[in-house]
């Protein structure tokens, strides 16, 4: 196995906020309804988090579980742990209707950091930041592509599709240009 290379191989931009493409990061799309028996336990076994409620992302350390839609979750974990995690899910949810697939390489993940990190996203997404609760993941439009972001102690995480990573990097760099602070 060769070294996995993320979409932009760690590109970064320093503006009024700091933008970095990070990765590779492990991501699993898990499709299941919340009432599936054993689901919470299976997710806990993989990410160590509780089953996230609607629009929430639950984080512990370098792992997280996010609610993506009424029957879809995104599990975030170290890249090297994906195969084992998929095996755990398969075992724990065996015989129960679900779908778990590795999407680590189908996505790009960005960090946006700095006191004004939110302003970068306010230029790109039609999302009301004041309406976002702590621990909420917001799936929305990032200029012309789909994306999702959530906030943690030091900044924002933003995911998008891998094929448009360079477009999104261009957007973030443009939006973080020094002198274009919003407030």
């Amino acid at each position: 196995m060769s070294r996995p290379v993320s979409a932009l191989d760690g590109a970064s931009f320093a503006g009024f906020a700091h933008v970095t493409e990070i990765g590779p990061v492990g991501m699993i799309t898990l499709r299941a309804k919340p009432d599936l028996p054993g689901l919470a336990e299976a997710i806990a076994a993989v990410t160590g988090t509780p089953l996230p409620d609607r629009r929430r992302i639950e984080t512990t350390g370098d792992k997280a579980a996010a609610w993506m839609s009424p029957d879809e979750y995104l599990l975030v974990l170290p890249y090297a742990g994906v195969a084992a995690a998929l095996a755990t899910l398969a075992e724990r949810l065996s015989g129960r209707h679900h779908l778990a697939v590795d999407v680590s390489d189908a996505r790009a993940l960005f960090r946006i950091e700095g006191a004004r990190a939110a302003e970068v996203l306010m230029k790109l997404a039609p999302a009301d930041h004041a309406a976002l609760a702590p621990g909420e993941i917001r799936r929305t439009r990032i200029a012309q592509v789909a994306g999702a972001f959530w906030r943690d102690e030091t900044g924002y995480n933003l995911i998008c599709f891998r094929s448009v990573a360079s477009y999104v990097m261009g957007l973030l760099s443009h939006a973080a240009q020094p002198g274009s602070e919003l407030f």
């Binding site: 499709r31 679900h98 999407v103 390489d105 189908a106 599709f161």
Partner: peptide, 9 residues
């Protein structure tokens, strides 16, 4: 369930 995994590969 469906999943679009076009870009995974």
């Amino acid at each position: 369930y469906t999943a679009n995994i076009t870009e995974q590969f």
